[in-house]
């Protein structure tokens, strides 16, 4: 299953819907003078300006506040007056053994979900796409996305009422004398539990982006391939999957960039049930050690380190994608 996405990505004979990275570009770029390029690409640059303006004002200006990572910051004293403490906050984050433990838990959860959660919406989209009767397809689609709008509190409650020690399943089991189990408080199966919850809540919502990708496939390609004698399996391999490939690769890269972020609210809600040993992740660690104590410097330092690592992961994943001949987020320069 893991390999599915990468295999797809490498299928060399696939119908190319995504442009290949243009190798001719670099030499071109060096020779074309800036003025010419500006004249050629002026409208493109102008088009990005509104977004840049909004991000500049509302993301970058307040981002300057991250300087408090090097301060013992108090909002009532202000950034200007708060004392600088050099790398103290960073050292405090890294120096805590609980932090390393939280990092490990985070990576384990991310890794597990990458394998067992990430492919699910893709599979579901393909499955739905293969339903031929539009009425059925639309109906199912209009049902599966709904849990996305449930709060985590409700999702956890629903799971508790189904699989908890006093839940529906256990009631049936005990009534028939088949013993009982408690999925909700078992640290050993916690990974499985939170992944199931995530799948239940968000997999149905996750499919829409893949459906959009599937809708771009030119039906003529299918007809042509049938004429060439391709069966449905080969059609999926050579037409359907390649159409999904660019967006799958993009999402995979971005997910890797988010590797250090896993369901904060979901985990905090179930922390008592399974214990911090398995449920402490980076975000909950920072929350308990920094945020709720108003230790802004600590929390910001942790956030900055996370950001740097995320960025490196994305850039790394992007490089990897290039190695497989994918566009990824960036083009090869």
């Amino acid at each position: 299953m893991t390999s599915s996405t990468t295999t797809v990505a490498t299928a060399p004979e696939a119908v190319a819907t995504a442009p290949r990275p243009q190798r001719s570009t670099p030499p071109l770029r060096r020779t074309v003078p800036l003025r010419t390029r500006w004249q050629r690409d002026r409208s493109l640059v102008v088009m990005t300006l509104p977004a840049l303006l909004l991000l500049g004002v509302f993301a970058y200006v307040p981002m300057a506040g991250n300087i408090v990572a090097w301060q013992d910051y108090s909002p009532y004293v202000g950034i200007a007056e708060s004392p600088f403490v050099a790398w103290d906050n960073f050292a405090r984050v890294l120096g805590s053994p609980a932090f390393l433990h939280a990092v490990r838990n985070t990576l384990v959860i991310t890794g597990f979900q990458l394998v067992f959660y990430f492919p699910i919406p893709i599979a579901l989209a393909l499955l739905l796409n293969s339903v031929l009767t539009p009425a059925i397809r639309t109906t199912i689609q209009s049902i599966v996305y709904l849990p996305h709008f449930f709060s985590w509190v409700l999702v956890v409650t629903i799971f508790q009422q189904m699989f908890g020690g006093a839940g529906l399943v256990n009631q049936i089991l005990t009534r028939n004398g088949w013993g009982s189990f408690d999925l909700m408080t078992n640290p050993d199966t916690f990974l499985l539990l939170i992944t199931s919850q995530a799948i239940w809540k968000d997999a149905g919502w996750g499919i829409i982006i893949f459906l959009a990708a599937l809708s771009t496939v030119d039906p003529a390609l299918y007809e042509a391939s049938v004429v060439d004698g391709a069966n449905r399996w080969r059609r999926m391999w050579h037409i359907t999957l390649p159409a999904l490939r660019p967006v799958v690769v993009l999402l995979l890269i971005l997910r890797l960039g988010d590797a250090l972020t896993v369901g904060f609210e979901q985990l905090i809600l179930q922390r008592g049930a399974v214990g911090a040993q398995v449920s402490e992740v980076i975000d909950t660690f920072v929350y308990y050690q920094g945020v709720i104590n108003g230790d802004w410097g600590f929390a910001t330092a942790a956030g900055l380190m996370k950001g740097v690592i995320s960025l490196l992961l994305v850039l790394g994943a992007n490089k990897l994608a290039h190695a497989f001949g994918e566009a990824g987020v960036y083009q090869r320069a």
Binding site: L55, F58, A59, Y60, V61, P62, M63, A64, G65, N66, V68, P75, L254, G257, W296, A299, T300, G303, L304, K306, G307, V308, S310, L311, V314
Partner: peptide
């Protein structure tokens, strides 16, 4: 902007 956020108070 995807990886570095601004805090609540500066915003």
């Amino acid at each position: 902007t995807m990886f570095f956020s601004a805090g609540m108070i500066p915003t």
